[in-house]
């Protein structure tokens, strides 16, 4: 992974779950990691929900107080520009859709100054997600996110799943979709995620745990 990884995608495409997995993997390998909860449009299912898990793994969390106030006013109460120059890895979990990526545009000039070989911006897709089922739809949204964030993606992550109903076949069926999105976007496919307990044989598979789920799912 590069020093900075920015993660974008459709609402509920699995950005937060991927961010948590990436952060834990780096931290458990002894790396210094900061996760930025940059979802300032939605107070539900956020990286900030994993504060205690992060603390247990020595991961730093930067999150605004939005979800803990009664004001529907998004605000960024941390200095991401400074964080970008600090030691260690930075994972930025962006809000859903173009609406969630607007705030990122404010940092575009700062990130543009950054070495391109040290910054990735990954677009997370889910073949089973309504409105991004067709590769064209996924690409349209990707373009909208790039417009508002004033930044360009560098890779595609295929995170196709059907929640708790996901089987190995669910993942395999969506492999061509990820490849098509990657080809049409002229961007490399970073990998295809699959839940660790499913035995899926993929050459660029990314095994993940499911952390983002409702309280009644154990």
């Amino acid at each position: 992974m590069k020093k900075i990884t920015i993660i974008t995608g459709h609402y509920g495409s699995g950005k937060t779950n991927l961010s948590v997995n990436l952060a834990l993997k780096l931290a458990d390998a002894g790396e210094k990691v900061t996760v930025v909860d940059f979802d300032i449009v939605n107070p539900y299912f956020r990286t900030a929900d994993f504060r205690s898990l992060f603390e247990a793994h020595g991961i730093t969390l930067a999150a605004s107080m939005y979800a803990n106030t009664s004001l529907d006013i998004p605000a960024i109460s941390f200095d991401m520009e400074r964080m970008a120059y600090e030691e260690g890895y930075l994972i930025v979990d962006v809000g859903g859709d173009d609406a969630g990526a607007i705030g990122l545009g404010r940092y575009a000039p700062a990130f543009a100054d950054y070495m391109p070989d040290q910054l990735d911006m990954w677009y997370v897709v889910n073949r089973y997600r309504y409105l991004t089922e067709a590769p064209e739809e996924a690409l349209t949204l990707m373009g909208e996110i790039e417009t508002v964030s004033r930044m360009r993606h560098t890779g595609i992550v295929n995170n196709s799943n059907l929640g708790s109903e996901t089987t190995a076949q669910t993942i395999l069926d969506a492999v061509p979709y990820g490849e098509t999105v990657s080809r049409q976007a002229h961007l490399p496919l970073v990998g295809t995620t699959y839940r660790k307990d499913l035995s899926v044989d993929l050459k660029d598979g990314i095994p993940v745990e499911v952390y983002v789920k409702p309280v009644w799912e154990s």
Binding site: Y44, F45, Y128, G163
Partner: peptide
Amino acid sequence: DGLLGQMMEPV
């Protein structure tokens, strides 16, 4: 409620 509105499930 907010939880049902925000959660992801297959439909």
